[in-house]
Design a protein around this nucleic acid. Structure first.
Lengths: 124, 124
DNA sequence: AGCGGCGCTAACTATTCGTAAGTACCTACC
DNA sequence: GGTAGGTACTTACGAATAGTTAGCGCCGCT
């Protein structure tokens, strides 16, 4: 192995990429793009809560990492398509796996939160 | 389905849990704990770059979500063990999957960054 | 006797993020 | 024909969030 990655090394570039892919907006955008090509404004609407600033910033980071492909159609009004690269698709599948797991196990997770809060309450 | 989770709804509790699990420190901590029970100071050392404040905060969030188990041994000097719950183990496996994928594909990702930077440079 | 390790917490500061507005151009409507 | 709205962003500023430093009480080691 010529290049070795270690996300537990704070100076390893893989750490930065991991932050882009697992960050709040990066992960949600990747997950959405797994459904297919989307326009900027579609993502803005579908990834609820993201601001235009953060969406633009997130997409630029993911594009630089080679996870997202940006295609500009030089028409008026502007039309820009975002899609996953083959590389990005592989990453997105893993992210989506986590999200669906969380969604499927939400009842257990919420129950754990309640139990935790109850324990806290009685120990005061 | 009684309880429905949707990480793309900004008010869904799954969004918060997803942020804990995919956040910079949360994801790294979960990944590390997949190797087995760790003490606070072990995590601090092994998750390079985390501050004590963020580690404590992160562990508390993960504990509340039922992903991490915290066991205090009331001895002096203090001894606290952190481990993954069965629930946390499932989530951590998915996180680890993403990390190892990133580490394995680092050369491709770095190449993509270089290509992107080169494209930017000539278009100036 | 002093230093460092243990697992935190509190106060302060640096960095990041969200909010709101501006850009330049077009379509549709009244 | 003037206003409202949509496209894909960028910029400036206040608010939230993260990192830095210090301290705590107690211990073993030297």
């Amino acid at each position: 192995m010529a290049t070795e990655g270690d996300v537990y090394d704070r100076n390893c570039p893989s750490r930065v990429i991991a932050n882009h892919a697992t960050g709040q907006w990066g992960s949600l955008v990747m997950g959405k793009l797994l459904d297919g090509t989307k326009r900027f404004s579609e993502l803005r609407r579908e990834v609820a809560g993201v601001s235009e600033k953060m969406l633009a910033q997130t997409l630029q980071a993911l594009e630089r990492d080679g996870l997202v492909h940006r295609e500009v159609h030089p028409v008026i009004p502007p039309h820009v398509d975002y899609s996953l690269t083959p590389l990005g698709t592989q990453a997105a599948e893993r992210i989506r796996g986590l999200f669906t797991w969380i969604e499927d196990n939400l009842p257990h997770l919420l129950a754990a939160q309640d139990a935790y809060d109850a324990r806290r309450a009685e120990n005061v």
